[in-house]
Design a protein around this nucleic acid. Structure first.
Lengths: 134, 134
DNA sequence: TAACAAACGTTATATTATAACAAATTAAGG
DNA sequence: CCTTAATTTGTTATAATATAACGTTTGTTA
């Protein structure tokens, strides 16, 4: 028997697979709509799965959108340190994987010398595509 | 006549004054409850004032809390670049004013060379007080 | 003072999220 | 294998957050 199975439950698997297949962040009720054929009937079933998936770092919540996206980063340490870029035009969201940035933020001390274990950063701008089209 | 009056309307003034007096971030419906004696009766009146106040940089929205806090920073450029520290224990929220950090983030380029005009950063940890008490 | 924009008031409703409770399932140790 | 505890589930109801749509009023500017 290994230490931790981290085996996902049925609902958790269903919700995760929908989020992983998606091209962008999904909203909770859109997930619900998408999984109703698979037996998940109530919002709470979705929210419970989401909560667990966030806890174990499989997905992140994009707070400015109240939407959920799969984690592509093996090293965001159970979702303690997240950074995203968000296009104001097409709403495209991408997780930022940048060692310098994450080191900088993880080591950041505020003016009183206080350090923080966790952060969430959301950048807004125009993605390349949308910039070209302007 | 000056260029821009930036004169706040009645409702905007009422909502702003409540937020400025508060010790921490306020939720929209708590604001509503607090201003009902002053003639504001409906959520929309509060949300409209909030929207405007955010737009002109007088307040910020703490996204992880769905709550609103007065801006103490004269230079956050109409709320384009915001950073907060949030205590996980007492929920104390403070706007971070740190030139190095804001320069670093304003100049940040992602791996594709993309730059962003706007960001929101929320740090989580234990504030000094709560750290001592542990 | 006409014309336009901004703000207002109001009702209704959409969207996002959680409480509470009982039943079913799973993991692990004796 | 059995039992105990923890987790997950299913379900109903409801809380909390936010916006749509409409017509009116106020404020600004030419």
């Amino acid at each position: 028997m290994t230490q931790k199975q981290e085996q996902l439950s049925k609902n958790q698997q269903i919700v995760l697979s929908i989020i992983e297949k998606a091209k962008g962040p999904l909203k909770a009720y859109s997930i619900l709509y998408n999984v109703q054929r698979r037996g998940i009937k109530a919002p709470l079933q979705v929210y419970r799965a989401l909560e667990k998936l966030i806890e174990i770092g499989k997905i992140h919540k994009i707070k400015s959108k109240n939407a959920f996206i799969a984690c592509k980063n093996s090293d965001c340490e159970i979702s303690k340190a997240t950074a995203f870029s968000i296009c104001n035009n097409c709403e495209h969201v991408k997780e930022i994987k940048n060692t310098k940035l994450s080191k900088y933020l993880s080591n950041f001390e505020d003016n009183s010398g206080m350090k923080y274990k966790k952060y969430n950063l959301e950048f807004f701008g125009l993605c390349k595509n949308c910039k070209l089209k302007q």
